[in-house]
Design a protein around this nucleic acid. Structure first.
Lengths: 114, 114
DNA sequence: TCACTATATAAGTATATGCTTATATTTGCA
DNA sequence: TGCAAATATAAGCATATACTTATATAGTGA
């Protein structure tokens, strides 16, 4: 595990973003996966604008990256960000979220583009 | 580094608390140290009630512990808390705060009880 | 070009948060 | 016993936050 340092300001920005259940779950889902907005909407059972707004905050702070693939915009963790090591470290302390993606897959709602 | 798991709710509570510059600095100062309220007031240049209120939140969530020593109430990290490993892990990514305590010491304002 | 789907943005609102000032509580000591 | 110092609590207020609903934008395919 890398231990990249970030200044207090940058750390509080990231921690504040992670200090919300919806966003922490989103980031947890992105550990090892790429997801599009509609998948978050389905898994988290929240409105599409609410999800979009959370994703924008995460993107503005550099925690996630977006990439359009046809109809969908996929999000993934921004591994080249200075705060990625901190984020990854935090994620090691919370339960895996991938069963939620597996459940999506079983129900046929998982989006695959490649 | 231990990797104790906590549920999402508990993690967001802790991360929300750490997602504030004042509180993150307080917790950073407590890494390896015990400090009393007046020291935080001096170092952070904030009002005593503001500091007290931050400390109460940290205590209510189990991140810190208090111990009275005569006139003063000293705070320290709660190392037996289920979220201590997460907190300690986060602190490895931010700069050491102890120069601030050393500066206090040089100016003769550090409180020592033992 | 048009309609449809996925996503983003904007504006409004209720609640949460972090301070302030004022006051209460607790302890040590003359 | 009473005062001073350290800390906590309470109430009030301005700002931040996380939704909502309505609308705009962008890509796909007929």
């Amino acid at each position: 595990m890398e231990k990249t340092m970030v200044d207090i300001e940058r750390a509080t920005t990231a921690l504040k973003l992670l200090g919300d259940k919806t966003r922490l779950t989103i980031v947890g889902l992105l550990k090892g996966n790429e997801c599009c907005v509609c998948e978050f909407v389905e898994i988290l059972q929240m409105s599409q604008p609410a999800i979009s707004q959370h994703l924008r905050k995460l993107r503005d702070a550099g925690l996630v990256q977006e990439e359009r693939k046809g109809h969908w915009i996929f999000y993934k963790l921004n591994e080249s960000s200075d705060i990625f090591p901190l984020v990854a470290n935090v994620l090691e302390h919370i339960p895996e979220q991938k069963e939620k993606l597996e459940a999506l897959e079983k129900s046929g709602k998982r989006i695959q583009c490649d």
